[in-house]
Amino acid sequence: MIDGASDTIQFAHRHLLGIEGLSPDDITLLLDRSESYVEQNRRIDKKKSVLRGRTIINLFFEASTRTRTSFELAGKRLGGDVINMSVSTSSIKKGETLIDTAMTLNAMHPDVLVLRHPDAGAAKLLSEKVNCAVINAGDGSHEHPTQALLDALTIRRRRGRLEGLKVAICGDIVHSRVARSNIHLLNTMGARVRLIAPRTLIPEGVERLGVEVFHDMNEGLEDCDIVMMLRLQTERMHGNFFPSIREYFHFFGLDYEKLSSAKPDALIMHPGPMNRGVEIDSEVADDIGRSAIREQVEMGVAVRMACLELLTLNRPETEQRNL
């Protein structure tokens, strides 16, 4: 069914560098497409041949378990050839610049480059230098579009819609690419976004992105449908943004007491990896009735399959032949 429909589906972008700039139709297309892969991934035979003969390179300059594995599985389940390159084994260690690495890889005719990089704008820079499609798997504190898409898919499957939902994103907003991508996606799809964090973790001018800002969990969570917790990204913190883990958890860690301000059936989400006892209480994280955290990981593979498929289909045949 998916194969049959492929010829008529058009994703209007050559790369997936961020959520900002995608239309509601773009996002709906990606989510609908992802939906069909969810079922396929639950079958015993998960393999398709959509990407047969295509090459995907995962280029990861930051440690990652779930995102890299998720992209690798997504590529393989669609029948593509997937190569993983991480910074510890690449020539970057020997002093090569990002662009030189990109040019080298480009000469090997990949169809998709999946890039994770600690600097904002790295995916954009790469996309300007290579012939293949680029998927941003996280660039610094800028965007992480597939994470926002998998979050949206999780919400849509649980709640049936995105429009009109009240979503709280809590924690280290200032360093979070997940937050930025989610803000763009949720706003584009008509959800209402609230940010909750100490003032030191709220980036300047964020209200202009169309969100409401709170500094108190109970106030901010009031009447929310979805509670997204973020990891404290201490590796990106220079200087101190809060005094201690215990004070942070006391005021901003999600526990049942604070959760009681949200709607009784509010869904708890976390992009992972979780710091238990820092931003989220273990009991809450493991609450099967409330927590969608494991489901998010499952949706991740489906979303990445859809992204790989749509971006590959999008590529003109001629360009590839002539390279």
């Binding site: 100490p198 003032r199 030191t200 500094h215 200087g239 101190n240 943004f241 809060f242 005094p243 005021f251």
Partner: peptide
């Protein structure tokens, strides 16, 4: 100055 900025900002939270 950066510590003072963070202190004012963090204190403003509460």
């Amino acid at each position: 100055a950066q510590v003072m900025r963070r202190a004012l900002s963090y204190a403003g939270t509460y």
